[in-house]
Design a protein around this nucleic acid. Structure first.
Lengths: 199, 199
DNA sequence: GAGGGTAAGTTACTCCGGGTAAGTTACCGA
DNA sequence: TCGGTAACTTACCCGGAGTAACTTACCCTC
């Protein structure tokens, strides 16, 4: 079997095994066996178990980029661009939830129960936020409350990580950005997309 | 040394070592050594390396809950409640960025470079989203564009994970929730906080 | 068509780190 | 003083990542 074929096969098998068992529980032996080759071959091609994972991630990333950017390119106006990007993103992550999502979220060697423990932290945040939203707007359907709560949790996590890269941002400023966005949305600070105006 | 003291000491040391080296690179031997005891003691107290990590997470989670819920309890109105919660959250994650944030974001056994690779996926999303925002609102300061982009990325990730728990939600619906929130914010669908009205 | 270089592949190991079995010290109450 | 128990240690097992050395088979050249 040629080098390129083997590499593609190994990547596909690895993505599958990582998705099934998680990074930690997946052994190089197992992946090699399913490829019908022996372990050193994997090391020949990818250097290490980490290298193999990284290659899987790179492949998934390239695909994600392709589907989302292609979808966005078809958009007529900014709002449409965002909508198409979002749909493509959710469709992709939904289809690849067993492999991609595990690679991203469980990231790699999660101690089995620890992925649940990390989610527990978020569930706890959920319990804090959802009642505020619900009390605020009794008319909002429960599903929307859930979705909005998840959005806020995700936003908080991302901003807190952003803060570690931007030490000049104080917690108060970070909170203000988050609040501004969550309160007014994009329509508050940005120009609404003028109807029919592309570009 | 008494059981309770040891346990507290071990947890503190473990949090420190996990934060310094990451879950994978941290060895039980190293943690035990820094505690001044031998490895089997750690197993006596926490059962396994995973158990030790889980205990660290539980402790961090309890602290995070305490500081955020206490801060929120002081809020006068919903907006104020959210703001106080956000400030407390960012302050906490900022202070504990070396231990807690690493536990949450790098989650645990990240293949060294893989944490960067996962972030690369997000950077890629950033490159797709930021230009749209910037084009949309040339007047928005670059820092705000950054913050808003990060918020959208975090929201997308959370919603995509939410979708795996709610298979009834289609990608289109997920996109619609995300768009509604990002476009109008809470002020669009919810009652604005009536001035001075607590509870 | 024989020879040799190279690329695909294997077996058989080392080594590190998580986890454990069995034993040792030292404190405390009877 | 003696025993029991609780904190703790040494010395080990074992699985899986990673590697060294060897084998096969193809293809290109003379």
């Amino acid at each position: 079997m040629s080098r390129a074929e083997r590499e593609a096969q190994m990547l596909a098998v690895a993505e599958e095994v990582f998705g099934e068992l998680g990074y930690r529980a997946a052994s190089m032996e197992e992946i090699a066996e399913r490829c019908g080759v022996s372990k050193p071959m994997l090391y020949e091609y990818f250097g290490s178990k980490d290298g193999l994972l990284l290659a899987c991630l790179a492949k998934a990333r390239a695909e994600l980029y392709r589907v989302t950017s292609e979808a966005m390119a078809l958009g007529a106006d900014p709002l449409d661009v965002l909508r198409r990007g979002l749909v493509a993103y959710y469709a992709f992550t939904g289809e690849h939830s067993r492999s991609l999502a595990l690679l991203m979220h469980e990231p790699m060697a999660l101690p089995e129960g620890a992925i649940g423990a990390v989610e527990d932290v978020r569930r706890q945040q959920h319990e804090l936020i959802a009642p505020v939203l619900a009390a605020w707007a009794p008319a909002l359907p429960p599903t929307a409350v859930e979705a909005y709560t998840e959005i806020i949790i995700g936003a908080c996590e991302r901003i807190s990580l952003w803060c570690t890269r931007r030490p000049d941002i104080t917690p108060e400023q970070a909170a203000q950005y988050t609040l501004d966005f969550c309160w007014s949305g994009l329509s508050g600070t940005l120009q609404p997309p003028t109807e029919g105006a592309a570009t």
